[in-house]
Write a protein that binds this DNA or RNA. Sequence first.
DNA 1: CACAAGATTCCG
DNA 2: GGAATCTTGTGC
Length: 184
Amino acid sequence: MLGCQLIKKESENLLIKGIIVETEAYSQEEPSCHGHKSRTHRNETLFAEPGRFYVYITFGIHYCLNVVTGKKNWANGVLIRSLAIPNEHEKSAAGPGLLTKRYGLNRNHDNLEVSINNGLWISKGFTTKEFGKIIQTTRIGITKAKHLPWRWYIQNSRSISKRVKGDLTPSLNDSWRPSLRETL
DNA sequence: CACAAGATTCCG
DNA sequence: GGAATCTTGTGC
């Protein structure tokens, strides 16, 4: 998903478009995943078929956006941690709680299918080569399974919002599709 | 039932 | 470093 765009249709004339520059993966077999221990009202969407948004509240205050990537009944998700929005301040969506605030996302968007028909989708449009190297590290802000190197981000992504000139015009035929994780 | 902890952010 | 504030897990 790195280098792809998260797009939300705000109105007939307004799209919010940001380039995904930081992600983390979570999976049921490791203890930092919400679906590791139990299946509850909060995390139910993580167990749905892949290709839906999973939105949850963290610390009672902030919303975090994930894309469900595992097969049905197996909790796998990718947390979108940071976006670069062209022509906006570099910090406008630089954090999982900040990007949902910028996009106006909340629990009403939980369980929504990733689709242009729902006004919230992911489109290709850039290759990461245009931006920089992809760096892989351990995940941030967790206390369990800290050793797993399941965080990826685009190096020097802070400057992308300035480097990308003009409007992002994604092709509707070029939408991102989740790939089913068959193993585990 | 009473806590504690959490995939965060902001302020000092 | 601490607070804000909701959901879930644990323990008595």
